[in-house]
Design a protein around this nucleic acid. Structure first.
Lengths: 335, 335
DNA sequence: GTGCGGATTGTAAACGATTACCGCGAATGC
DNA sequence: GCATTCGCGGTAATCGTTTACAATCCGCAC
């Protein structure tokens, strides 16, 4: 069931079959009809490897994330895939699991598969292979951390602004002892947020207290442990900003376990606005960074790079927005 | 940078290069060394399309799910992908978004890409294309709904048993008016669970009350609405079994909004044991069906089918386990 | 009748690998 | 000393497309 079989059945050459099936080149309508019918009867499906081999384009897009299990990603992947599908592209999804060697393997396979473009949102990098991809003209879109260059776009998230919004919000509510539960500081994006927190506090005339800034793991467990530690501080913080919704959920548990209440005793702010934020109790005040937007933006950026002859990359900013729900409240008068 | 370039540089033929790089065929060590060095120097990466074209195998696996955004899937995908990666397979991920035409498109693309196997967990099906895949000898693994046959395995989840465990648990706690929030009954798996609920009740000598069985959407919103309706029933149910953790979360909200408490006033059971279950307040009693297990089982089943010469499919059962947490308690003495 | 041009269609060369088959020299057996 | 075997490596066919180029057909103007 290849193009040759169709050709025989329709009594034409393989060239004509190809022309018909791809609707390019001129084919007399009656000839075309014969070809279509033959293809139909033989249940023909084109072989994309053969196609890719000769055309040099695979209609394959690579998407590399660190961990699909992180609740932030599914919506991103969904949007990305949906757009890719609309444009008849297939998606190769890989996770690095936060390991550099897996990242290397991923990129290598992308190279071998001749993907038409790669979007990546991970902190692990393999500079060598990235450069190799770039050298071979493979369009790249970095999400989170990255650069802009020829055939290289960057979807940047405005973490700094988001955290600043969070800080302004709780400061505006009268809080002064404000804690921050950071993600692993090995991650660039975590450092950015931590720095933005410190900076946000200073802007409002508050001297950050090192003891109130804890490193954690971007998980509920991490948030829980960090918060347990924070609650032992004296005087206790009256507000906690978390670098992630799930750490906030963990914090919620720790606070609950300590017999305190959110938001009456302690205000809590999350980050990302994943689905859990609206369904925790109380619902989380959080900073929205739309994963769907990011996925869609990245995919479109990739298409632009693929089609654009000028090969100019772009810097695309994802805005953040403070979503006030029930986990923050006015600070109680200092005792 | 193809095999020919390496051949020239190492002053051998392309055949020798291929033999060296694939470590099959006999090549004198010194010749091999020259080839490796040339490959290294030229930064060579094999072209998988050319490979696939001649070998007929693509080292590509298709994974089709209905919606990656459903919190049950990420862990499944992660496990599947991880295993695939270990075996040097790449993953093409597609979502059907619950639409049959997207399913058709997905399967068609799998066919064109000559994937070595497809695993699918969706309710949408395209019998025609499935059969086409099967006819072409593509191994298939169905999760959830499906059949066993030549080159066709089925990873079956024991929904019925899971629901029965849930029912037994609440009945054991003294509940008699037990409600069930079902998923959309257009889904086979939802019907199975609903039927198992009815059956479980009967086994314990309780006549199911139609008014206490509501169809919903497998989302938090759905659970919330359904529960609001349930709470208006008189006498009120004292326990609610949900067909999904997120509907249970929605139920939790509805109950809270009504000024009632879980588990004191109403006991609540979820299903799946997604991460949210342990981090809701109270933590959900739920039926665990390990998504990780399912993903791993499916992937292994696929490998078996790919390697097995006998082409025998298998039926693999995923067990369920009741996880008792804080959302269920003894029924209060009937007033 | 001849020549021209546009519309169709065919021939064959890529694309980049794998591999069946063959050739050649050296080692081995007798 | 000759045949046989084995180790190594080259030649060329093959996988299923696309596409440059050439060939053919047809209508039409002269």
């Amino acid at each position: 069931m290849n193009i040759g079989a169709i050709a025989r059945r329709a009594k034409v050459s393989t060239a004509t079959v190809s022309r018909t099936l791809n609707r390019n080149g001129a084919v007399r309508p009656e000839t075309a009809k014969r070809v279509w019918r033959a293809a139909e009867e033989l249940n023909y499906f084109p072989n994309s490897h053969a196609r890719a081999l000769v055309s040099g384009r695979s209609r394959l897009l690579g998407l590399i994330v660190s961990d699909i299990t992180n609740p932030f990603f599914p919506e991103l992947v969904r949007q990305f895939e949906s757009l890719a599908q609309q444009h008849q592209y297939d998606l190769i999804l890989t996770s690095t699991d936060y390991q550099t060697d897996r990242m290397t393997a991923c990129l290598r396979r992308m190279l071998e598969r001749k993907v038409d473009g790669v979007a990546l949102m991970t902190s692990e990098m393999d500079e060598g292979l990235i450069e190799e991809l770039s050298r071979r003209g493979v369009p790249l879109v970095f999400m989170d951390v990255g650069q802009v260059g020829p055939r290289m776009s960057h979807v940047a998230m405005d973490y700094a602004n988001g955290i600043r919004q969070a800080v302004d919000h709780v400061v505006g509510l009268g809080h002064r002892r404000i804690a921050f539960v950071s993600g692993p500081l090995s991650l660039h994006s975590a450092r950015v947020r931590r720095d933005a927190f410190v900076d946000g506090l200073r802007r409002r005339g508050i001297t950050p207290d090192k003891k109130l800034i804890l490193e954690s793991t971007h998980t509920a467990e991490g948030g829980q442990h960090a918060t347990e530690a924070l609650l032992r501080a004296r005087p206790r913080p009256t507000a906690i900003v978390c670098s992630n919704d799930w750490t906030a959920i963990g914090a919620l548990h720790a606070i609950d376990a300590a017999g305190l209440r959110v938001p009456e005793d302690i205000s809590l702010v999350g980050f990302d606005d994943t689905p859990i934020a609206s369904y925790s109790r109380p619902p989380l005040t959080t900073v929205r960074m739309s994963a769907a937007d990011i996925g869609a933006t990245a995919c479109k950026a990739l298409f632009n790079l693929i089609e654009d002859k000028k090969h100019e990359g772009a810097l695309l900013r994802i805005p953040t927005e403070l979503v006030v729900r029930g986990s923050t409240a006015r600070a109680r008068r200092a005792k």
